[in-house]
């Protein structure tokens, strides 16, 4: 099987060779530079950088805001996907098209637009300022930016699954006497759960590394609103390559772990759902 198709169509050597070369030169070798550089640090150096209070604070902030934003996106992304797939209303197509805005819009533009809106003097920030709630330049502002960035990940992973979800599951549940609420909770949600978790993990991973949309709205106060990617930037500007690399290595390991989890989730979902 494998050999016949190999022989029949030409170009395997050329395309695979080029792809691998390109991938190695552009991605693999440069990325391994981070780990090689990190390896030249002594344990002490590494831990001193990573456990420095300011660095720790940035990790905590990055982690928690990404987690919070991914959670918000899991809830609202599910809601949006549900509404777009199951209901018909004027403007649905338009909204569906808009979902991808965060993919296509440069992050810097998103950053300044959100900051202008959610600052105390902005259209939305001004609504909250009288209540004593500050949005921009706080962790809430960072979370808002990450919600913006992560939304399409959840919607676009849940949407196709929902689209393909056979009505017969819900019908079977109804025939067994289950109320609509029970059906949604016990039958539909578990069917969507793998996709929802994948979307959540994707949004979370994206949030950990996000820079452009966040730097403007975060205010960048050390210990308070300074995210880890910004700290990498700061260290680089001070020519502290070692420090920047140590932080980057931690972020990379976290991202790869997430990638691994996402792959596992997808494979599991495929296995369970392949049955007719």
């Amino acid at each position: 099987m494998r050999n016949t198709s190999k022989r029949l169509l030409p170009g395997f050597g050329l395309t695979m060779g080029f792809s691998l070369l390109y991938l190695s030169l552009l991605v693999l070798i440069p990325l391994s530079a981070v780990f090689l550089k990190a390896a030249t640090l002594s344990w002490d150096q590494f831990w001193q950088t990573v456990l420095n209070p300011r660095v720790l604070a940035s990790f905590r902030l990055t982690f928690l805001t990404s987690l919070g934003a991914a959670a918000v996106n899991a809830v609202f992304g599910l809601l949006v996907a549900w509404v777009l797939v199951r209901y018909r209303f004027p403007g649905r197509r338009f909204l569906d098209g808009l979902i991808d805005i965060p993919f296509a819009l440069p992050t810097a533009v998103a950053g300044i637009a959100l900051t202008t809106l959610y600052a105390d003097s902005g259209w939305i920030g001004a609504l909250f300022a009288p209540l004593g709630i500050k949005l921009a330049y706080t962790p809430i502002g960072i979370t808002i930016a990450l919600v913006f960035i992560g939304l399409p990940f959840v919607v676009r992973t849940v949407q196709p699954v929902l689209q393909e979800l056979d009505h017969s599951f819900e019908e079977a549940s109804a025939c067994l006497g289950a109320s609509r609420t029970r059906t949604l909770w016990k039958v539909v949600l578990p069917e969507l759960l793998p996709a929802l978790l994948t979307g959540f993990a994707l949004a979370f991973a994206r949030g950990l590394g996000e820079y452009g949309s966040v730097v403007f709205i975060s205010g960048n106060m050390p210990m308070k609103t300074e995210i880890a990617p910004l700290l990498i930037m700061t260290k680089l500007e001070q020519f502290d390559y070692a420090g920047a690399t140590a932080i980057a290595a931690v972020l990379l390991v976290l991202s790869f772990l997430l990638l691994f989890v996402i792959n596992g989730l997808q494979r599991r979902a495929n296995r369970v759902q392949r049955q007719a």
Partner: peptide
């Protein structure tokens, strides 16, 4: 191969710049 192709999605853009500085 597919996972490696997706790798840049999982890497922070700041790190994408950092690697070339290194």
């Amino acid at each position: 191969f597919l996972t490696l192709t997706d790798l840049p999605f999982a890497v922070s853009p700041v790190i994408a710049g950092l690697v070339f500085i290194l």
